[in-house]
Each structure stands twice: as structure tokens, then as C-alpha cells.
Simulated assay, not measured.
Amino acid sequence: MVIAYVSQNYEENRFDLYDEFTDIENFLNIKEFISYYAANKNRDLVLLYKVDTLEEIEALEQISFSNNIYIILMGKDDVAFSLLAGKLGVDVYLNYEKIDTDELISYITNSQNIIKQRKGNSNVSVFTGINGGVGTTTITMNLAKTIADEYPQKNVLFLDFTDTKAVSNLFFDVIQPTKTIVDIAGVQSLELDELFHNGLIKLSNNLFFVPGIQKHTDKEEFSRAENIQVFLNFIMKIKERFDFILIDIGTFKDKDLEVDIQEMADDIFVVTEFNIPSMSILKTYIDIIDKSGWYNKTHIIANRADAYGSVTHEEAKKILSKGLKHNFEIDHSLPNDALHLRECWNEAKLVCELYPDAPFMDGLREMIKKFFIVDENAITREQLCNTSFFAKVKKWL
């Protein structure tokens, strides 16, 4: 989430508004915010806009608001001000002379739920690995199938955005798909007939799948500037139909499409292993996360965590967090279940189908309960109260 401040007096309020829970920008005026917003339309935003005149409220008409922005307007105790604010679609109008900290905490905390309702209650989760072979695709495929099987009331979509020749279609028994992710991103509507004609495959009553590219040359489609927004628009539109969208982007690469998909995602799962070479590679990626404002939605998953030669959780934490603002944790560990996983990979079979009681599957079900079938509040009231966030807001006011 981004919380943006718009203030009349920029120099007086030029202080760092970044803390553990929010990625914040400060702007001189509403035009500056519009410029920023245009470049960040895939992120959730809370705008705190302080005004002294009706003309400043009228400036909000310049913004074509989408459903991922929540507006808290702070102005004088004047009926004309509050009425105009409501007419223009402001979510909350507050008298800046009587700002109540607890009330403001509630509005900001609840804003995420309101934005979520506006956008639909679906969850977009991106899975990426620090390098090939760490189990990213295996984890993502088995998660999608297990959620669909064990929670039949949930509709699940698996999207394969890996930029190498995809193999996930083999595990879902789609040997030679005629259409892939490259085709479906260009659909003009969400009509099922068009989706199915352009690559969407129904695997069961509530599990759906779009295969990844089948030719190495197709990966060029991911890097074309004119295609990137098409792919992003497709993901935003398709959210209307699914509770969970799991996206496998393969090995992390600092490319525009991958970065933009992670930017718009609700959660990012980074798959690694617990050895020194993997920790070194992961540290590079963590630096990007730390600078990109993805800290809150990033979860580090250690696969084969108890394999021979693995570092401990504490050692991994020290390596990852050294020199960074945030303390990165290993959020979940999966066991070294090489016996079952090797057989399933060699035969292109899902672990959840052949060995539903394998140790790997026990760890995967714990992961589902921890990250997917839960009630989430990315920023809690307690977290906000324990920061200097509101001291800074008071200073600004």
C-alpha cells in the first residue's frame, strides 16, 4: 500500500514518512500526485489530502479514480466542504482541527478491506524462485490443485508466466496446448467462450489453468512494451471470476513484466533453499524487495529446509537482513521430501495426487492455512499504534 500526502507547504513538511508498514510519498499538490498515481495504478493507495479552500477540493475532479484508491480529506468544519467532498467521491471527510488519532487509525486500517471489496475478494499470488530447480513450479502447481480440491467453494486459476518452455501443462495432463498465456492476454472480454477459445482450460469444477509458452521464441512477447500493459490488464480483469489466482513467473529476473506483476500482486512468494549459495542469490533479490515497498507482501519460502548442509533459520535471517531497513524472516519451510518429489517430477505427476499424505503435502497444507484460507489485515491497529506514523501526521497537520 502507498499512503500519499498532499500538502500546500512542501518545505515545511519535507520529512521522511517511510516506516515498517507503509511506503509513503509526499507531494506538493494534487497534480504531482496525479503524475505519481498514473505510474502506480496497480498499487493500492490511501490519499490524505489537506485542504483550506473549496477550490482545492474541486481539484479532485481532475482525477479519474479507480477502485484501488481510498481518499481521506481533511479540511475545516464547514458543511459546504464536506458536501462537495462527498459529491466528488471522497471516502472520509475529517475536520482537521479535531482529528482523532484513534478514528484516523480505524479509517486507514479499514481502508484495505474496503479497497479489497471494491476490487473483489480475489487474491493474486506470485511465485518466483531464486534460481531454477528450487521447486517454484512444483510448489505452485500443487498449491493450486490442493486449494481447489480441499476448498471446493473456492475458484482457483493457475497462470504460467515462466519465460522458458513451460512444463506445467504436462503435470495437468495438457500435453500439447494449442493456445497459451500469450494468446489469452489479448482477449477483449471476460466471456467464458472467448476465454476458453484463447487458452483457458477447465481442469475441474473449480480449478482452471492457462498454459505457459511452448516455444522459446514466444518469450519475446513478454518483453514487448506494448504487451506488458495488456498482460496486466488481463490479470486485473480476470480477478472478477476467481478467488485465488496463482502465478508462476519462474526464476526471478529484473524484467519489466515480472516486476509489474509483482507490483500488482497481493502476495509474493520467493522460493529458496537453505544453503549458502542460495542465500547469497536471495540477498540480491531481497535488496530489490526492500527498495520496492514489497516488504509487507513478500513471503520467503524455504524448500528442502532440512536437507544436508542447510543453514539454520537464525543464520539465514542474519544473512538476509544485514544492511537493510527490514528484518527479513523465513516465513515458511517445506521439508526435504526428495523421495516423493523426484518420482513425481520424473513422471510429470502432481504430489498431491500420487502422495497426498507425503511430508511435502503436510507442509503445503500448513502453508495454505497460513497464507490463503485466513482473514487478513496487512496493517493492523496494533502495528499502526506502535509506530511514529501518527506523530508525523500530527506534525504535518
Rank of each mutant, 00 (worst) to 15 (best):
I3L: 09
S7M: 15
Q8R: 13
Q8T: 13
D19S: 10
E20F: 13
E32K: 09
E32M: 08
E32Y: 04
D52M: 10
E58V: 05
L60Y: 01
E61F: 05
Q62F: 05
S66K: 10
S82I: 09
K87Q: 11
L88Q: 07
I99R: 01
Y107M: 09
K116A: 13
R118H: 13
N123G: 12
T128C: 06
N131K: 14
G133D: 02
G135L: 00
T137M: 08
T140H: 07
M141N: 07
N142A: 02
L143S: 12
K145N: 13
E150H: 07
K165E: 13
S168L: 09
N169L: 04
L170M: 15
V174I: 02
T178S: 02
K179C: 13
K179A: 06
L190Y: 12
F196R: 06
N205D: 07
F208L: 06
P211N: 03
Q214E: 04
E220P: 12
N227A: 11
F231T: 06
L232D: 10
D243A: 06
I247N: 01
F252E: 07
D254P: 11
E263A: 14
E263M: 12
D266A: 08
V270L: 07
V270S: 00
F274Y: 02
F274V: 10
N275T: 04
M279K: 02
L282H: 11
I286L: 00
I289Q: 01
S292K: 03
H299G: 06
Y308R: 15
G309R: 06
G309A: 15
A316L: 02
L320A: 05
H326R: 12
N327P: 07
I330K: 00
S333H: 15
A338P: 12
L341G: 08
E343L: 13
N346T: 13
F360A: 15
D362L: 05
I373M: 11
E376Q: 10
R381G: 10
L384P: 03
C385E: 01
T387H: 00
S388N: 05
K395E: 03
